[in-house]
Each structure stands twice: as structure tokens, then as C-alpha cells.
Write a protein that binds this DNA or RNA. Structure first.
Length: 713
RNA sequence: GGGCGUUUAGCUCAGUGGUAGAGCGCUUCGUUCACAUCGAAGAGGUCGUUGGUUCAAAUCCAACAGCGCCCACCA
């Protein structure tokens, strides 16, 4: 053994050894309890960041622990096509070449993105291996795998025929730059100073920040309790510049203290106004199109960009004396989470999921404890979302994704929904000319089905219908055995996007929760607790750290110092400290291996001894084992890691080991035993160095691998 | 405007009723003996503030203050 542990010499070799032995691939074994984690699938074409490193470390610790405990343990890896993210990155590349998405037809564009993603295939997977992820590669799934798509279609079809999906002309959050709509969750809000214009509508004055939308006004609303307008209700107001009359109505949504207390109702371009419009049966006028350009306005504004039109309209209003007052207004506006540019609320026809019934069954499952959220603070947030989610817009106007299996009849305009098969005839009128909706699903719609989709896709059976209930057992192999999965461990920031939708769709499609435990994890911050971002220049590259200090060190450092559910701070100092610990373990072993082995093949229980130091370290080992086990069961990984660190370095190496130097031969069996047990306890946390030592021990312990040894009791 | 969380050693964080903890950093000394990616010793905190409950509070409760995050229909 070398004087210093050199991770570069061992990590790759050890990982291959595990793979060669099939250590990651569990068997469906009814005599054992399953333990399953479905890995949150990283983006297929992105390298991992340090947050992934923490997530991988967390899951791999749980996985290795359960595997050693004797569960049939499955960690299913996968990757996500990440619709919008990927198309966004790809379009940026196109722009660099002076091209845009509109230069290509749908299929060409799709194939180009497919090729682009394929070029990056394997990067993320290689990095997972470098991190030591003991996931079952034979079950790897991609969100665009044929079988996955088929399952997503089945879910959609069932939702449709159950009346839980409707195609609605509704106001959607549209980003003109992305060229697609979003759900409520993809909209961010930023604080902003804007001009608030008080406009003369003849009968009264209204205040607005968006004068370019006055042409889309269909009413003026005042609060029913607002006395100053009581006598105007039912009368008409006149839109400036075009002199179109609109009725004055009442609605309690109007804030009587804002502006003049009178609101111009523009259902075509404002979510609240849309709601008011629905209630009062108002018509909808659109004056901004999908490209963010003006339509249905007086000639001079037509096809101006909305922001330009605003200036022009203001100028004209000013000239004609319609602007009575201007104010600066500090407010928040919705922006695209990618571009940070304003979201344009526009009305369009899209597919929506009725969320309420699904939220109700999810709440019931939480209440019954079928699914538990480990940190109660997140349980509260989950309930907040379940109570506040609106109908979910799942249509995206992009090509990179799963195309919606909906065909519209050219004759009767009715929709035919299938589970992917191109229909020959319209279900309503039998007409033969049908046109498929060009839109794709929101990525979260497919990843919301990930736990059951990945397991079902492994099955040989594909001609089934949802829902699958408990009684359909003994058909689907993996799914029957591993579902519901044990732990789901994503970052807390995707709780509403992903976790809640998995619960909703899982319960809907399989009558069971997709996982029993939700263990949300925090974000990795830099050593000052500041959020990591490229612009701040505090990015920690996990692969660089692995090359420098070894995967064990990065893993250990990334879970060190804070609870799973909290944000953690990571610094190179910390990683280096863990590298030192790995070296400490290595050298303690090296010291122990200097003396010939006392008993080949290892120990199944503590050797007998009367020496008081021996007895003390055996007791300390027992206490540590119990404590670490208990902490792992409670997902308190940092405390478990810290307990082990203290035990091995202080109690074992510094205290006990020093004291054996004068009675080396006599103590050898205890040294071998405590090292053997320590390596097992440390293995989930630092798999490489511990396995490297195990392999170097030359049958001192036993002749198999550490990864497949059993957890100490 | 709501909600959630947080405030403990220089830094980053554990500790959830019983004499203040870890890592990193710092100081001093040591080290041909497994490891300088080492060892020994040490400095450093009235646990945000004020009240309350309790034999006992960093820990439970209330109020206040600072910080952070999330949500929201101020047009």
C-alpha cells in the first residue's frame, strides 16, 4: 500500500469491479423487502453541477446502506429531455449561426435537437459513475424512450376520457421570446418601477400601466361597495382614441383604493380581467399576437412591438389630452423564468388538466400518511400548493418534447385522442382528414409520471390500461415489486413542479402513491452561504473537485455540516478536510496491515478479549454502530457522517490505535475486527477508499466485495 | 399584503428540556515510530432582544428586531 491514498489509482477500477459483479442490479426477490429510489433525472445534455453531487451522495448513501442491510435495492437512473431548457439552449446556438427556429420545419428542427442531445449523451452518465453512484444502469430510462412516451400517452388519454383534461380558450402565460406558453409555476415576478397613466374615459378616469391594451377593453369595472361610482354603474365609458363605448360594471375583485378605483377590463391580456370577463360573459379582444406584435388596433399601431406601441399610444393620448395624470408605480410584474422578460398574458386554446380532483386525492394520501414529507416545513408548503394550484396548462408551443396525441377533425373540428396511434377517422363524425395538434407536453407532465413510467417501461407487457391497481399484481415484474417506491429525494425548489404532480398523477394512474417518503434536499451554497451562480463566479465544478481530491471527499463534504433538507455551504477547505480523512482511513488500515492477519476471512462478531482498551473500543464501536444506524433511518446523514468521523479518527486512530503499539500482536485481532466494521459503516459515505482498502486487505476480511457485505449490527 | 424559515465560537453549520458542540480557520509546542493529507495542548460563545412556562430553557410559548425564501388579482 502506498503511503498516501491516491484516489486516481483506484476509483475507476473499483467502479468497474462493482459493475462487473452486478452489484447495482437487484433481483425481484419476494423473500426480501425492496428499497427503491427513482433518481430525479438530470437534463440529458447538461453536465452535472455541484448540487447534483450532493443529491447523488445523499441517495447513494441511502442506497448502499439499504443494500448492505439486505434489502433488494434499486436505484433507477434516467435522464430528462427537459423540453424548454434544451430548446432554449439549442435556439441560442442557432442564433449564433444567424438562424432561428422558424428557418426549419418541425421535423427538421426536432431531429437537429435530437442530434444535439445525442452528442452530449454519456457526459452526465459518466459523471454519475465518477461520483460513485451505485445505480442500476441496466434499467436506465430517458424521458423520450418509446415505452415511456407510450405510457405518457396512456395517462393523457385516460385523463381526457375521464373528463380531467379539457381544451380551453383561456388566458395563458406567454413568453414571446420563448414562443411558448407556460403554466403558472414557470412565471417569476420581479419588482419594477413603471408609469401609471390616468386616462380619461369620459364618464370616469381609469389608471393603467398598459395603455397599449386599451383597444382590447371590453368594460370598466368598479367595486360594488364604491359609493363614488354607484350612480355610474350600467352607464357607458368611452375608450380614448377609438371612441368605442364599453359598459361600466361592478366586480369585487376591483381594489377601490388603487388608482381611481376604476379598472379597465381587458380579458384578452390580463389574468384578473379574464376572470372578470368570464364571470360577466364579456367578449375577448386580442390586440397582441403570439409574436408580441399589435393586432386589431387602429392602422398605425398594427404590427408594432407591444413595447413600441405603448410609447406611440402614450404620445397620441398625450397630444389629444387624454392623460390626466402620471404616477410612478412600484409593482411586480410576471417575467419569463428563462429570459427574465415580461410574460405576455394572451388568450389561446391549450390543453388544461383540472387540478382540483387530483389535488384532493393527494391531500387525502398525505393525511393518511401514505406519503410522508420528512421535514414538516415542506409538508406545509405542499399543502399550500395543493390548495392553490390552478388548472395546469400542459401545452407547449415547442417541438422538443412529446407531441400531444390529439387530432382535430378537419370537418367537424372535434378532437380525437388516442394513446399514440394515428387515428384513421374522427371519433365524432368519422371524417378521414385529421390534423395533429402541433404542441408538445409540458416536460413536467411526463416527468410527473416518472416513478410508475420507469418501472412499467421495464415490463414486457405494454398493452394495458390505466388505472393499474394493487389487484393487477403479478404482471408487471419490476412495477409490482418496487412500486410504490421508498424515497424521493429532489431539491426543495421543485416541490410544486414535480413532487406534487408525481403524487397527483401517480395516485390517479396507479391508485397508489408513487413513493412513501419525500426527502427534499437543500441547495448547495458557497462557503459564505451565498447562492452559487455563474455570474457570481463562485461555481464549484464537481468533476474538478473529484480529480483533485477524490469522489469520496466531495461526497462527504457535500453532505457534511447541514441536514439534508437545509441549504449547505461547501468550500474547497471542507473537501480537502475530507480528503485528509480518507487518507487517515487509508493509513490506519496500512498500519493494521503491517502485522500479519490474526484470522483469515474476517469476523462475524467481536473477538474475545480481556484487555480494557480492547473492551472500550469494542463498546465504542457498538455505540457508534447503533447511533449511525439510527441516524440513517432518520435521514440525518450529516450527523451520521460526523459521528463516524469522530469515531474513526479520534476514538479508533488517535486513542486506541496508539495504545496498541506496545502490545501489537496481542491486539491484532481487535484491530482487524474494528477496521472491518468501520469500513462497512463508512462505505456508504466513502465507497471508493473503503472498497479499495477492502480489496487491498487480501482476504483479511472476506473474499467478496465490501459493497455486498452486510451492515453491522 | 400573506405564509414559511432562520438568528449558537472568526466562517459554515449540528444540537429541540438537564453542567455549550463539529469541521474549517487561529495560537503554541511536537513529530525518523501508519499518516505533516500528522500528533499534543490551547484561545474563542452571557446560544438575536425582551418577557413568560418550568426545579431546570440554546431547546417550549409570546412579542419585537435583523436576515432569507416562497406565494399573491396593486390593474
Amino acid at each position: 500500500m502506498d503511503k498516501v491514498y491516491d484516489h486516481r489509482k483506484y476509483e475507476q477500477k473499483i467502479y468497474s469491479l462493482w459493475e462487473k459483479n452486478g452489484a447495482f442490479t437487484p433481483k425481484v426477490d419476494k423473500s426480501k423487502n425492496p428499497f427503491t429510489i427513482i433518481m430525479p433525472p438530470p437534463n440529458a445534455n447538461d453536465p452535472l453541477h455541484v448540487g447534483h453531487a450532493r443529491e447523488v451522495a445523499t441517495q447513494d448513501i441511502l442506497i448502499r446502506y439499504h443494500r448492505m442491510k439486505g434489502n433488494s435495492t434499486l436505484w433507477l437512473p434516467g435522464s430528462d429531455h427537459a423540453g424548454i431548457e434544451t430548446q432554449y439552449v439549442f435556439e441560442k446556438k442557432l442564433r449564433e449561426k444567424g438562424k432561428s427556429r422558424s428557418d426549419y420545419d418541425r421535423d427538421t428542427l426536432y431531429n437537429m435537437i435530437w442530434d444535439y442531445v445525442k452528442d452530449n449523451t454519456g457526459v452526465m452518465e459518466k459523471q454519475l459513475r465518477q461520483l460513485g453512484a451505485s445505480c442500476d444502469w441496466s434499467r436506465f430510462k430517458f424521458t423520450l424512450d418509446e415505452k415511456i412516451i407510450k405510457i405518457v400517452y396512456k395517462t393523457f388519454k385516460k385523463l381526457y376520457y375521464d373528463g380531467l383534461i379539457y381544451r380551453g380558450e383561456r388566458i395563458v402565460n406567454y413568453c414571446p421570446l420563448c414562443g411558448t406558453s407556460f403554466s403558472q409555476l414557470e412565471v417569476n415576478y420581479i419588482e419594477k418601477e413603471d408609469e401609471l397613466y390616468y386616462l380619461d374615459y369620459e364618464t370616469l378616469t381609469i389608471a393603467t400601466t398598459r395603455p397599449e391594451t386599451i383597444f382590447a377593453d371590453v368594460a370598466i369595472a368598479v367595486n360594488p361597495k364604491d359609493n363614488k361610482y354607484k350612480k355610474l354603474v350600467g352607464k357607458a365609458a368611452k375608450i380614448p382614441l377609438i371612441n368605442r363605448e364599453v359598459p361600466i360594471i361592478t366586480d369585487r375583485l376591483v381594489d377601490l383604493n388603487f388608482g381611481t378605483g376604476a379598472l379597465k377590463v381587458t380579458p384578452g391580456h390580463d389574468p384578473v380581467d379574464f376572470e372578470i370577463g368570464e364571470k360577466h360573459n364579456l367578449s375577448i379582444i386580442s390586440v397582441i399576437d403570439m409574436e408580441g406584435k399589435m393586432i386589431n388596433t387602429p392602422e398605425k399601431y398594427i404590427s408594432m412591438k407591444a413595447s413600441v406601441a405603448r410609447e406611440e399610444v402614450v404620445k397620441d393620448l398625450e397630444e389629444k389630452g387624454y392623460i390626466k395624470k402620471r404616477e410612478r408605480l412600484h409593482h411586480s410584474v410576471g417575467v419569463c423564468y428563462k429570459h427574465k422578460t415580461p410574460i405576455e398574458p394572451i388568450v389561446s386554446k391549450q390543453w388544461f388538466i383540472k387540478v382540483k380532483p387530483l389535488a384532493e386525492i393527494s391531500k387525502a394520501a398525505l393525511k393518511k400518511g401514505e406519503v410522508k414529507i420528512v421535514a414538516k416545513k415542506y409538508d406545509k408548503i405542499a399543502h399550500h400548493w395543493l390548495n392553490n394550484l390552478k388548472d395546469w396548462n400542459i401545452s407547449r408551443q415547442i417541438v422538443w418534447g412529446i407531441r400531444i396525441p390529439a387530432w382535430r377533425c378537419d370537418k367537424c373540428l372535434e378532437w380525437t385522442i388516442t394513446d399514440g396511434v394515428v387515428p384513421k377517422n374522427c371519433v365524432s363524425c368519422g371524417h378521414e382528414k385529421l390534423i395533429q395538434d402541433p404542441d408538445t407536453f409540458d416536460t413536467w407532465f411526463s416527468s410527473g409520471q416518472w416513478p410508475y413510467a420507469t418501472l412499467l417501461a421495464q415490463s414486457r407487457i405494454s398493452n394495458f390500461q390505466f388505472p393499474i391497481s394493487k389487484n393487477d399484481k403479478a404482471k408487471f415484474e419490476d412495477f409490482d415489486y418496487f412500486y410504490p417506491t421508498s424515497v424521493m429525494n429532489p431539491a426543495y425548489d421543485i416541490l410544486p413542479f414535480w413532487v406534487i404532480r408525481m403524487i397527483m398523477l401517480g395516485l390517479y394512474a396507479t391508485t397508489r402513491v408513487p413513493f412513501k417518503i419525500v426527502l427534499l434536499h437543500g441547495l448547495v451554497r458557497d462557503r459564505f452561504g451565498v447562492k452559487i451562480s455563474k455570474s457570481k463566479g463562485n461555481v464549484i465544478n464537481p468533476i474538478e473537485m473529484i480529480n483533485k481530491y477524490g469522489a469520496d471527499s466531495l461526497r462527504m463534504a457535500s453532505i457534511w455540516g447541514s441536514l439534508v433538507e437545509n441549504d449547505s455551504s461547501l468550500s474547497e477547505d471542507n473537501i480537502r478536510g475530507q480528503r485528509n480523512f480518507a487518507n487517515k482511513i487509508w493509513n490506519a488500515a496500512r498500519f493494521i496491515f503491517l502485522e500479519s492477519v490474526a484470522k483469515r476471512g474476517g469476523y462475524s462478531k467481536a473477538p474475545t478479549t480481556k484487555n480494557s482498551y480492547d473492551l472500550k473500543i469494542i463498546k465504542q464501536l457498538r455505540v457508534t454502530t447503533k447511533k449511525v444506524t439510527r441516524l440513517l433511518e432518520k435521514y440525518r446523514l450529516n450527523e451520521a457522517a460526523e459521528t463516524l468521523y469522530d469515531f474513526f479518527w479520534n476514538q479508533f486512530a488517535n486513542d486506541y490505535l496508539e495504545k496498541t503499539k506496545s502490545r501489537r500482536k496481542d491486539a491484532q485481532k481487535i484491530l482487524d475486527f474494528v477496521l472491518q466494521e468501520s469500513l462497512k459503516l463508512l462505505h456508504p459515505f466513502m465507497p471508493f477508499v473503503t472498497e479499495a482498502i477492502w480489496q487491498e486487505s487480501k482476504n483479511r476480511f472476506n473474499n467478496t466485495t465490501l459493497i455486498s457485505s452486510s451492515w453491522p449490527k
